[in-house]
Design a protein around this nucleic acid. Sequence first.
DNA 1: CAAACTGTACCGAACGTACGGTATAGTTTG
DNA 2: CAAACTATACCGTACGTTCGGTACAGTTTG
Lengths: 183, 183
Amino acid sequence: MRESKREAALEAAKRIIQRDGVTGLSYEAVAAEAGLTKGGLLYHFPSREDLLVALHGHVAQRWEQAMEAEGGAPAAELDRASRFGAFVRASQYPDRAELLLMLEASENPVNNAIWDDIYHRWVDPVPDSADASAEEVQRFIARLAADGLWLYESLATEHLDPELRRKLADQITAWGAPEASTD
Amino acid sequence: MRESKREAALEAAKRIIQRDGVTGLSYEAVAAEAGLTKGGLLYHFPSREDLLVALHGHVAQRWEQAMEAEGGAPAAELDRASRFGAFVRASQYPDRAELLLMLEASENPVNNAIWDDIYHRWVDPVPDSADASAEEVQRFIARLAADGLWLYESLATEHLDPELRRKLADQITAWGAPEASTD
DNA sequence: CAAACTGTACCGAACGTACGGTATAGTTTG
DNA sequence: CAAACTATACCGTACGTTCGGTACAGTTTG
């Protein structure tokens, strides 16, 4: 048991957030869920803030791992089309905890940076409004559609039919990679 | 005639949620913001749950009013293209409180119904996966892109350039209404 | 007509509990 | 041995909720 229930605590914290939202995240709840005591938790995370920061890192890392699994490689090793394809495919399987945490992060620069880093690795920067070509606009809209799919699946009580979901992902991917123009 | 502070309290609650999230919504905070006392608030909203339900209704109504303003008429009086156009244009100006509340609602059937009603009035139903035509898929993706735009503007620290934002909205609207251009 | 009564809209203080955090002493495990 | 815990007790505060009271407009009734 040496070397830590820390990971277990973070996984438990993630489950609690999925179930009860960020408000439900208390030391006692996490301790009960993870099978350790409040004292043990406080040993790893001296304050609730510390727990939250660690949780952002943990969940964000899992998200990037999911995209890497879809793409078969880290972002840096993929061309733009494959990178975007992995991003879109991963958007089919959202995690409620991700959405809740990203929202929570949007008001906190430190946590926001955690998510921003990953975003910057996987999606193109926002085009300049002045010299935005039709193609750039189309690619950005495809990215927004992927975000929309992700949001939809996060919020909707009833998930989309897997077949339709795949159709949507394929079409969004196609629109996001006009021509075979790689980097 | 003595003025009801009920409406003022709901507006105050909305501001508090925008600023501090749902967690920040306490009787004391709302009372201070709305200029009445905790006791007075309790008179109108006997429990925190009651306050939240009323707030969902209030904010959702404001959202629909924004879409009606964009479309120039209630959803029922608009054809599909104009309806979707109003939906997309309204998506350019998101309200952080809306996102937070929609998220909160997604776990509560009563509150969820409030938002669902409006959604059903303004966007097409999800296509059947079996007989989904390419056009239906395209329209649904356009709707997802509008949601993505809305999410982006809700979360991003830096808002999009208004010119680019308009370009995006126009293009999304065009994709959402293939073969028919009513403007 | 006025006194009594009713309902609505609040105020203000208090209560109980949950929670974040502290403290500390003991126990397992690599 | 030291890191990684367990177990228990405690403190202060924030918050939801209860409750008794106030002010006043309108309605009823002797």
